[in-house]
Design a protein around this nucleic acid. Structure first.
Length: 188
DNA sequence: AAAGAGATGGTCT
DNA sequence: GACCATCTCTTTT
C-alpha cells in the first residue's frame, strides 16, 4: 500500500478534458509495475476532445481508441511512432471520447527504478516527455484500459495534498499537425 | 543552442 | 500505402 495519498475522485475527472487537464497538474502518478514503486508529480498535460481534429477519437470509435469512450479515470495507452508508448487519463462522460495526455513528470519516489529503465539519462530527463514518462514508469500496452483510481493498482492517480497551480502556463499543443492553435497544453 | 533526420510499427484510408 | 499526440543522435551555427 502506498501512503503517498488518496486516489483522485472520479467525479473530478468527469468534466470536459480542457477543464480537467489543469486539475491534474501536481497530482501524483504512482506505478507498481514489475514490483517496483515509482511515483512522479505531473508537470505537463494536454487535452484532447472528440470534436478536435488532433484527437484519436475525431473520426469516431475504433478498436484502438475504445477506452477513450469509456469511464473517466481509466488509462488510454497507445504506441506512438512505432516506438514509444503514450499514456492518457480518460475524462468526460461515458461515450464522449476524450482524454488528457500525460506529457511530463518529476520523479518523487523510486527514482532508482526510473534510472534503471532510462539508463544514462540525467535525472531531469527521466520523464520529461510523454514517451519518456512511460519508459520511466514501465507503462506499455498491457496497461491500456486499466482503472487508475483504485488503490494498489498497477498505476494510480493520487492526491497527496499538493494543490494544482493557481496559474499554470497555457499554450498550444505539441507534435500535432491539426488543431495546432488550440491552447490546451498546461504545465507548471 | 538549434536544427535535421532516422528509427519503427500499428492504424486507418 | 500514408500517416502519425515522439525520441535520440548527429551535424551545424
Amino acid at each position: 500500500m502506498t501512503d503517498l495519498g488518496t486516489p483522485l475522485d472520479r467525479a473530478l475527472l468527469a468534466g470536459p478534458a480542457p477543464a480537467v487537464a489543469p486539475q491534474l497538474l501536481n497530482r501524483l502518478l504512482v506505478s507498481h509495475i514489475g514490483g517496483d514503486l515509482v511515483a512522479g508529480r505531473i508537470t505537463e498535460v494536454e487535452a484532447y476532445t472528440q470534436d478536435d481534429p488532433a484527437s484519436h477519437t475525431f473520426r469516431g470509435r475504433t478498436a484502438r481508441n475504445d477506452v477513450m469512450f469509456g469511464p473517466a479515470g481509466h488509462l488510454y495507452v497507445y504506441l506512438s511512432y512505432g516506438i514509444h508508448f503514450c499514456a492518457n487519463v480518460v475524462t468526460g462522460e461515458v461515450g464522449r471520447g476524450e482524454a488528457v495526455l500525460l506529457r511530463a513528470l518529476s520523479i518523487e519516489a523510486g527514482i532508482e527504478h526510473a534510472r534503471r529503465r532510462r539508463t544514462g539519462r540525467p535525472d531531469r530527463q527521466l520523464a520529461d516527455g510523454p514517451g519518456k514518462l512511460c519508459a520511466a514508469l514501465g507503462i506499455d500496452r498491457d496497461h491500456d484500459g486499466i482503472d487508475a483510481l483504485v488503490p494498489d493498482g498497477a498505476l494510480t492517480l493520487l492526491d497527496d495534498g499538493v494543490p494544482p497551480p493557481d496559474a499554470p502556463r497555457v499554450g498550444p499543443r505539441i507534435g500535432i499537425t491539426k488543431g495546432v492553435d488550440t491552447p490546451w497544453r498546461f504545465r507548471i
